[in-house]
Design a protein around this nucleic acid. Structure first.
Lengths: 224, 224
DNA sequence: TTAGGGATGGTTGAGCTGAAGGACTTCCGT
DNA sequence: ACGGAAGTCCTTCAGCTCAACCATCCCTAA
């Protein structure tokens, strides 16, 4: 179980400041598969994840959903609602038993007024997140389902999260059938090994090769 | 030409504070079609747009590009590089003659230390932007090219920006042929009127109808 | 304890189709 | 009158949908 000091956004707070912050944190436990907040629900603060993995998902009218991201200990959810007093843009569902810390908006403002440097770290985090989504959006235009899945496997490979085929599909933005087919193909070619939900990367070079042609590394000759 | 006080992120600064900030701003003029910063180029600060429209674009190795957004007076570009000292994630190109104000990172930090409340407004802005991109990403998974184009037309209709077919395509994430075909179809059905690059919406209801089925309004019956 | 029966998740094949791409022509501004 | 943008037509194919089937896991009742 991580502590407040392990959150990157609080990395430059000292012991006493962390203690002050601690007072504003209310810990809540969830079982596996529980909803932390619903899409469209009014937001009153944000959440620190102390333990367990959580998925952030946007639902569509049709059956399809898009998993925006999967976050774990040391990360936050709902932090985009801090200032606009609006509602949650996606729903958050636990992938396993989870412990979060909830901080009410007002309490956090009170803290921020005294320790404004914290918001700088949060701005930095948000910037990175924004860039990540800009990249994902562009990736959707450029690359095929196979490439997106390969990139996803490379990305998840390190984190060790275990997801269902449907969840992988909802992350990569493909149908579950396509995800299944692609995974089977990669397995039969000896590039990955699958044991139920655990995907092991056997030949990273091959995955890289699938991904490479569209990597963000810019080909100088293409710069106008 | 807008002034500093017209920028939403500076909306709660007073006259004297704005004057102080003004000192850090260096104005630069660009002609139509010029690059303000290149994708991958190191970033030294950020830009305020005082006049003219600018497109932010990510390029892929293939011919395809993705227009991330189109911004105009009162908005900023490059503000995601403020804290991470990295490089630009996309390139910025003017759509018409443009006047920007460049603020060097160091100068802005100096200002922020004295006026920390500004960063709150900027965080708010960034949050909204992040949500917008999350929504766009989800939209890519859900909706057909026709729906995305319809939504884009509705969105641009109000702003009055004039774009080429290729640019419309690069915003919606479709091929230029598809964009052309869809526009022609909408025009022949009397839903929009096109005179060269100016798109006029004749029957908004019809566009809404194309878009509706996937609107972000949540169908309560779908909430688990 | 074991056998049935859901429910959930995974797999596979076949066919369809939306949208991309290529090749050309036409239009229009400079 | 030239070059780039816009438009048209036709072909092709990636990936979705439909449909059927299998594998697990968990619950309940005999």
């Amino acid at each position: 179980m991580v502590e407040l000091k392990d959150f990157r956004i609080f990395s430059d707070l000292k012991g006493k400041e962390l203690d002050k912050l601690q007072e504003a944190v209310r810990k809540i436990n969830y079982g596996r598969g529980e909803i932390i907040f619903q899409e469209g629900a009014p937001a009153f603060g944000f959440y620190l994840i102390f333990e367990g993995m959580v998925k952030l998902v946007k639902r569509s009218m049709r059956a399809k959903s898009q998993i925006l991201k999967i976050v774990g200990p040391g990360e936050t959810i709902g932090e985009t609602t801090l200032f606009d007093k609006g509602s949650h843009n996606a729903y958050a569902k636990t992938l396993e038993p989870v412990t979060v810390g909830f901080i009410e908006r007002g309490d956090f403002f009170y803290f921020l007024e005294r320790h404004p440097k914290t918001i700088f770290r949060m701005y930095e985090k948000l910037s990175q997140e924004l860039k990540a989504f800009q990249n994902k959006l562009a990736e959707r235009s450029y690359s095929s389902s196979k490439e997106r899945l390969a990139r996803l496997i490379l990305h998840l490979g390190k984190s060790g999260v275990e997801l269902s085929r449907a969840e992988l599909a909802e992350m990569a933005g493909v149908s579950s059938k396509t995800a299944i087919r692609t995974l089977s193909e990669l397995e039969s070619r000896g590039i990955i090994a699958i044991e139920s939900r655990r995907i092991k990367i056997l030949r990273e070079e091959y995955l890289q090769k699938i991904v490479e042609p569209f990597s963000t590394t810019l080909n100088p000759s293409l710069i106008i």
